[in-house]
Each structure stands twice: as C-alpha cells, then as structure tokens.
Amino acid sequence: MLRDITIGQYYPADSVLHSLDPRVKLFATLVFIITLFGANNIFLFAFVLVTLIGIIKLSHVPFSFMVRGLRAIVVLLVIAGLFNMFLTPGRELVRFGFLKITDVGLKNAVLMTSRMVLLIIGTSVMTLTTTPNQLTDGLEKSFGFLKKVGVSVHEIALMMSIALRFIPILVEETDKIMKAQMARGADFESGNIFQKAKNMVPLLVPLFVSAFRRANDLSYAMEARCYNGGEGRTKMRPLKYSSLDQRAYICIFTYIILFYAVKFVM
C-alpha cells in the first residue's frame, strides 16, 4: 500500500509537458482545480475531463502510473461518496431503514468522488512531469513576492524539495521497520481502530528516530557543501520562459475563456 503513493514522484520522459516551465504548470494546475470545482453541470464537467485526457496524452506518462496514486485514497473516496449519498437531504429515491438515498445525494456523491479522482490525477500529472527541484524552483519564483513581507520563501521551498526527496526513502524504511516488528510479533492488522492506532507506536517511534538521524546527517552534508541559505546562490537551470511557455499560457487563457463562456451560456 505504501508504495502506491505517487504524489511527488517524477516520471522521466520526453514530452511537451516535461519541457514546460514549472510556473506555467503550477498556474495551469491552479486553473484546473478552480474550473474543476466550478464545473456544476455535466457539460462543463465533460469539458474539464476531455481537457485532462488531452493533457495526459501529451504527458507521455502511462495512464496506469497516474491511477496508481488513487489506490491510496480509495477508502477516503468511498467514505466521502457514502456520506454524500446517504446524508444529503432531498427527494427520496430508495430507503434502507433509517438510511435513504436522495436525488441530490446521488448527484453529489458522483460529482464529489469524480472531482476528487480528477483532482488527484490532475495534480499528479504536474508532479509526474516536473522534477521536485523544478517544482520548488517554480514555487520559489512564483511566491517570491512574499519575501518582502518576511516569509522565508527559499527555505520553505528547500524544505519541500527535501521532503519530497525523502518520501520514497522513508516509505521503504517504514516497510522495513514494519517487517522487523512483525517478525518479533507486532500486530498491525487486528483489533479495532484504537488498538490499531496504539499498535502503530512501535512503528512510529523507530521511524521518527531514524528520520531525525537522517536529518542530522543531511544537515552536515549540506553544510559541508557550503550551503549558506538562499543568499548568493546561483542556479544550474534558472527558470526562463521560452516561446513554448508563451503558447502554453495562451492555451490556458483560451481554456479559461471557453470554460466561463460555456458556464455563462448554460
């Protein structure tokens, strides 16, 4: 299960999306999320869906790779769907005891779950086509204006990129510790939810200890390589807009105009 987390994983390939400036992709993702939640009827929804499919085709990332990210949140999706389905007031369709399915509930459930699915897929398109370093560079540049009000943008961006780099390592470590504890009789499967949570302690304590140790090692390694904060740093690949990015921006704005045109007409 832990290996299914694709958030923050990069899929190396040669595509238009891979060579776009991360700022463009960040902006596009933001637009995508806004329109996804603004899509309140089936036409708009289909419009967003078709756009996403087109983008996935452009990305050259196998579709199965993106769907893998969904497996980790299946439970969440099911719960959200069920809650929406049974607990929304409206015209009653079917009734099981005290539970009833209403027309609004059904519609909400379908809309909610498909929105979440698309949200995950859409954002993972961005992370799969952007290296974490590019991504944090993009964030650092896009939010650079916050530096003026005293937010340490560079540090936050670096923290994020390091966190992303260590996700797979810590996942592997969790797996290892889990197996080691199971070999000594720890039980992560049975019991109710509270017992399960309690059983996690022998997993979490060694994981935290090792994470702190790694953090300590890493801080030494960074200092040894002359890391001294964001001041006076240069970049191997400074962000520069190309003509490709300009065209991408035009596409995004066309998309926004089309979306709101359809929304307005409907």
Binding site: Y10, T131, P132, S161, L164, L218, A221
Partner: peptide, 9 residues
C-alpha cells in the same frame, strides 16, 4: 549515501 543526496535527480 542516502543521507547526503539533496536533490531528486
């Protein structure tokens, strides 16, 4: 080796 590599590429 894991604890001294900062970037993901």
């Amino acid at each position: 080796p894991d604890n001294q590599i900062i970037a993901s590429v």
